[in-house]
């Protein structure tokens, strides 16, 4: 086997109860259990996480609106093919911040392409730029019982927050004392 960086798992982060799970990025891991831990260590160095999901990148069926518009991705499943639950994610609009695809709901389908077809009929497709579907059985979710040990500790590490270093008032004071303050710096923070 080649020296590998292991498989890639997509990571979905929920900032607070009730908020949708949003794709945060991905982690490399040898298996799902390790991926969930890596997701915690990579994406929860700072507070604001309520729950994490990880899913192997290979299990995600992803199409941009541009790709969906082409007709080359869909083949109908056999009528008697067994159905299973797929989670559906979409990127809606052109958000200015870091939001990418977020969880919108689930559908029952036989194949990933079928799941996407059902998703397009189930969820309003207007203004959606990216669709992702993934079978729920491939998604590993953090347990609520573990939230205290997985997510709460980040809150104690205040030194990771820039607000821990009140340097702007010192700089303003120094510049003011030396008549160096220009107008923009009199009113706003310089970062």
């Amino acid at each position: 086997m080649n020296d590998s960086q292991w498989a890639r798992y997509e990571v979905f982060e929920q900032e607070r109860a009730g908020a949708p799970h949003r794709n945060a990025g991905s982690v490399h891991a040898s298996d799902a259990e390790m991926a969930l831990g890596n997701a915690r260590d990579v994406f929860v160095r700072r507070p604001n996480c309520f729950s994490l999901w990880v899913v192997p990148e290979a299990a995600v069926f992803a199409k941009t609106a541009q790709e969906v518009a082409r007709d080359d991705w869909y083949a109908a499943p056999a009528a008697d093919a067994p159905r299973e639950t797929y989670l559906v994610f979409s990127k809606k609009g052109q958000p200015a911040r870091e939001t990418f695809v977020e969880y919108v709901g689930e559908v029952q389908a036989a194949t990933p392409a079928h799941a996407l077809r059902v998703a397009l009929e189930t969820f309003p497709p207007q203004d959606v730029f990216v669709w992702w579907v993934a079978p729920e059985r491939r998604v590993l979710k953090s347990e609520q019982a573990d939230a205290a040990s997985m997510f709460a500790p980040a809150r104690a590490k205040k030194y990771r927050m820039h607000t821990f270093y009140p340097v702007e008032p010192i700089m303003r004071e120094l510049k003011s004392a030396q008549g160096m303050l220009d107008n923009s710096e009199k009113t706003t923070d310089n970062d």
Partner: peptide, 18 residues
């Protein structure tokens, strides 16, 4: 040995120092 563990092991160290 791998980037994710660089980050994870530093977390353990930060916790111990804390």
């Amino acid at each position: 040995p791998i980037l994710e563990e660089d980050i994870a092991f530093a977390n353990l160290a930060l916790d111990e120092l804390g």
